[in-house]
Amino acid sequence: MSLSPSALPFDDIRNLVRQMPGPDEDAVAEVRARDAQLTKPAGSLGKLEDLAEWLAGWSGRGRPKVSRPVVAIFAANHGVADKGVSAFPASVTRQMVENFAAGGAAINQICIAHDLGLKIFDLALDMPTPDITEEDAFDEANCAATMAFGMEAVAGGTDLLCIGEMGIANTTVASALLAGLFGGTPGDWVGPGTGVDAEGMARKRAAVEQAVARIEGTSDPLEILRRLGGRELAAMAGAVLAARLQRTPVIVDGFVATAAVAVLHAMDPRALDHCLFAHVSAEPAHRMALEKLGKEPLLDLGMRLGEGTGAALAAGIVRAAAQVHDGMATFADAGVSGKG
């Protein structure tokens, strides 16, 4: 698939959502048939069996494999950081991107442990999006172009895409985006993020309330993204849409990544069927967001780092599920008596 980042207005994005393929039911049936013959009691591997079916359905492979997994981290800065909504200054975004490149971050170690590829995308870190309490994050052309950049970022071949992010103040943006999409009291979507203190929480809650009030009456999901989002959120939404069109299974990381893909769900509730949600983070509103999406997280480890760390850990489990299904002997292969 080739998409031009300079030529993707919102109408074209809506058309792509309408063109999303469904799962390959023949591949799922093939997995179920083989699973019934493997040297184990039926259902004894629990969710690992479900993961093998999920991989098959969205990869179209009746013997699913994960040989080219990639963690994609999208990094951006936000004008709302100047409102004192984070425990860290915006300069930390670039410093952490440099740390990723040097191999010194948590995500680097998890990728090494599970043999995962890692790609980092710098989304104009020196040009933060405007402060969403005062003005829109994008115009339509730039929002669409950023989504298209995310679509192109997944080109080059992967059979399992894990999405994550880095961006000081992006939990504020994610909270505003979720409040805009799902409603409720804006403050209910606000949490401590990277560990902001009580005064910072008050500033953060006020910022989310101001941002959501500013767009009152806006209901179109892409318009809500345009007005309240950030570059890394728009790019993640684009990457997940492109993965669906390419029949690539996706693992979504934490609170911010979930907010990004919620835009697609608001456009079409089926839009995230190819996505596995890696974990429920310690950010309080993440569980509420997952409930709104009707998604059950794979893990609950009390994590709240971002960086794609939860998605990378989940990828290790998904790889194990594929290997178990593909590599196990059948009763006939092993000469083991099956269930009579």
Score class of each variant (00 low, 15 high):
residue 308 G to T: 03
residue 82 D to M: 11
residue 87 A to F: 02
residue 17 V to G: 03
residue 175 S to H: 08
residue 256 V to L: 07
residue 250 V to F: 01
residue 195 G to D: 07
residue 191 G to L: 01
residue 242 A to G: 06
residue 87 A to C: 08
residue 62 G to T: 13
residue 1 M to P: 14
residue 259 A to R: 06
residue 47 K to M: 15
residue 246 Q to T: 13
residue 125 L to W: 00
residue 297 P to H: 02
residue 157 G to H: 03
residue 5 P to F: 00
residue 51 L to Y: 12
residue 143 C to Y: 00
residue 41 P to K: 00
residue 33 A to S: 10
residue 41 P to N: 00
residue 154 V to D: 01
residue 25 E to T: 15
residue 129 T to A: 02
residue 33 A to D: 10
residue 305 L to Q: 13
residue 105 A to R: 03
residue 130 P to K: 02
residue 334 A to H: 03
residue 300 D to Q: 15
residue 257 A to N: 09
residue 195 G to Y: 05
residue 51 L to S: 13
residue 11 D to P: 12
residue 295 K to W: 02
residue 163 I to H: 00
residue 294 G to D: 11
residue 32 R to D: 09
residue 255 F to Y: 14
residue 165 E to D: 04
residue 104 G to V: 07
residue 182 F to I: 13
residue 36 A to S: 02
residue 248 T to A: 04
residue 293 L to G: 13
residue 268 D to W: 00
residue 70 V to R: 11
residue 48 L to T: 06
residue 264 L to H: 03
residue 103 G to Y: 04
residue 323 Q to I: 15
residue 71 V to S: 03
residue 315 A to H: 07
residue 51 L to H: 12
residue 122 D to M: 04
residue 333 D to Q: 03
residue 270 R to D: 14
residue 12 D to G: 12
residue 67 S to T: 15
residue 5 P to W: 00
residue 179 A to P: 13
residue 102 A to I: 04
residue 175 S to T: 12
residue 148 A to L: 01
residue 19 Q to S: 11
residue 307 E to S: 06
residue 163 I to D: 01
residue 104 G to K: 07
residue 186 P to V: 05
residue 105 A to G: 06
residue 13 I to S: 03
residue 55 L to H: 09
residue 72 A to Y: 09
residue 57 G to M: 03
residue 34 R to F: 01
residue 175 S to L: 09
residue 291 E to S: 13
residue 290 L to D: 10
residue 186 P to H: 04
residue 19 Q to D: 12
residue 263 V to R: 04
residue 299 L to M: 07
residue 237 A to Y: 01
residue 165 E to L: 01
residue 23 P to Q: 07
residue 180 G to E: 06
residue 285 A to M: 05
residue 335 G to E: 01
residue 202 A to G: 14
residue 12 D to A: 14
residue 329 A to T: 08
residue 180 G to T: 10
residue 152 E to I: 10
residue 42 A to K: 08
residue 169 A to L: 08
residue 287 R to W: 03
residue 97 V to G: 03
residue 133 T to S: 11
residue 307 E to P: 11
residue 235 A to Q: 03
residue 178 L to C: 11
residue 90 A to S: 15
residue 88 F to R: 12
residue 64 P to C: 12
residue 297 P to T: 07
residue 324 V to F: 08
residue 233 L to H: 09
residue 321 A to S: 09
residue 283 E to N: 04
residue 114 H to Q: 14
residue 301 L to V: 13
residue 80 V to G: 05
residue 41 P to Q: 00
residue 280 V to I: 11
residue 211 A to E: 03
residue 334 A to Q: 07
residue 124 A to Y: 00
residue 253 D to A: 04
residue 308 G to V: 04
residue 158 T to C: 10
residue 76 A to S: 03
residue 87 A to D: 06
residue 180 G to I: 11
residue 126 D to K: 02
residue 338 G to N: 08
residue 98 E to V: 11
residue 101 A to M: 10
residue 180 G to M: 10
residue 70 V to D: 09
residue 304 R to N: 06
residue 233 L to Y: 07
residue 126 D to G: 07
residue 8 L to G: 06
residue 241 L to K: 08
residue 115 D to S: 14
residue 134 E to L: 10
residue 25 E to Q: 14
residue 248 T to E: 05
residue 199 E to Y: 07
residue 102 A to K: 10
residue 90 A to I: 11
residue 335 G to Y: 00
residue 97 V to A: 04
residue 298 L to G: 11
residue 162 C to V: 12
residue 239 A to W: 01
residue 106 A to T: 13
residue 167 G to L: 00
